[in-house]
């Protein structure tokens, strides 16, 4: 998805001037009603408007660039995610927000051609340090994926898997407690408590996604990354998950990628708008949706393109 973003060689340093090589499409120029197309505007962005940095940053990203082979997907992003905050990453398809999110627990390591530059710090610890072990990192920074992906095991085993492999609990009774509390936190306990041994893949889509969330929080991560967690769900299941995110934000730091602006508005404290790999604007969610600082953000949230 992300690797189709940029065709021209894009500037990486802040001083490089815009390359106006891309042809603008009709819709884009109509939408913008200005001389410059959104593409050109995006490519000229060198600095994020709004307040990308925060005081008590849990995750601090500085000058993050991501390349897929020759193609650059994320340009020079600076962003802080504060503790117990929900940050929504929005933007049109292929703008690099998922790629960026996957950098935060090094899931991009599994993609051979992906290269990440810059610094990403979790509580001041550089997670791209070559000596760092990704296993404990991913225990601290959990992830919920776009498509519900429970293991083809029982509901109980799905939730117990993380604590088991990390050796968090030793006794069966403790494990039972962890499973129950995780499922309760994920709002799934009442629905599945009588069939913990039945396969997780037999649940409905929304239940599966909540099971995945339960599985993620079973290892008590500090940060939860959510990559469009509701894109495969119906509105009712979506509402449940959103409720859940609101509850989880009391204990966890959450970064969520979403295509639904209503969702971003409902669940997040701060919103970051990405366009063509650039972080255009970061502000309080309310400000982004009522009075955005950047023209691209405004165009996107008012539905003029995207």
């Amino acid at each position: 998805m992300q690797d189709t973003v940029i065709e021209s060689k894009a500037p990486t340093a802040k001083t490089v001037q815009v390359e106006r090589t891309k042809k603008t499409t009709k819709t884009e120029s109509n939408a913008m009603n200005a001389k410059r197309s959104p593409t050109e505007i995006a490519e000229s962005i060198t600095e994020t408007v709004g307040k990308p940095l925060a005081q008590n940053a849990k995750l601090a990203m500085r000058n993050v660039n991501v390349h897929y082979d020759q193609k650059q997907a994320v340009f020079d992003v600076n962003l802080d995610i504060a503790e117990n905050q929900v940050v929504a990453l929005i933007g049109p398809s292929g703008c690099g927000k998922s790629t960026f999110l996957r950098c935060l627990n090094r899931m991009n390591d599994t993609i051979d051609i992906c290269r990440v530059e810059g610094s990403i710090q979790l509580d001041g610890m550089d997670i791209y340090d070559s000596k760092l072990d990704v296993v404990p990192l991913r225990a601290r920074v959990g992830m919920v994926f776009q498509k519900p992906n429970p293991f083809p095991k029982s509901i109980y085993d799905n939730v117990a898997y993380g604590p088991r492999i990390h050796g968090l609990v030793n006794r069966r009774a403790d494990l039972d407690d962890v499973v129950e509390s995780s499922l309760r936190k994920a709002g799934l306990w009442e629905e599945v408590k009588d069939r913990l041994e039945s396969p997780g893949t037999g649940l409905s889509g929304g239940q599966q996604q909540r099971l995945c969330i339960a599985r993620t929080i079973a290892v008590s991560p500090e940060v939860i990354l959510m990559d469009e967690p509701c894109s495969a769900l119906d509105p009712i299941a979506t509402a449940k998950i959103e409720e859940l995110i609101a509850e989880l934000s009391q204990n966890f730091t959450i970064a969520i990628v979403t295509h639904s602006m209503q969702q971003a508005a409902r669940v997040s404290n701060r919103t970051a708008y990405f366009h063509l790999g650039r972080l255009v604007e970061v502000n309080e969610t309310e400000k982004v949706f009522t009075n955005p600082d950047h023209e691209l953000t405004e165009a996107y949230i008012t539905g003029r393109f995207g």
């Binding site: 991913r138 225990a139 992830m143 293991f151």
Partner: peptide, 27 residues
């Protein structure tokens, strides 16, 4: 074996060997 299962295992902090032995191999 679907990549989503691998991602799920890695995302929860399984090492590569655990991912293979617990998920890929049984499937």
């Amino acid at each position: 074996v679907p990549p989503s299962i691998r991602e799920a295992a890695l995302g929860i902090g399984a090492s590569k060997m655990q991912m293979i032995l617990h998920h890929v191999l049984p499937l």
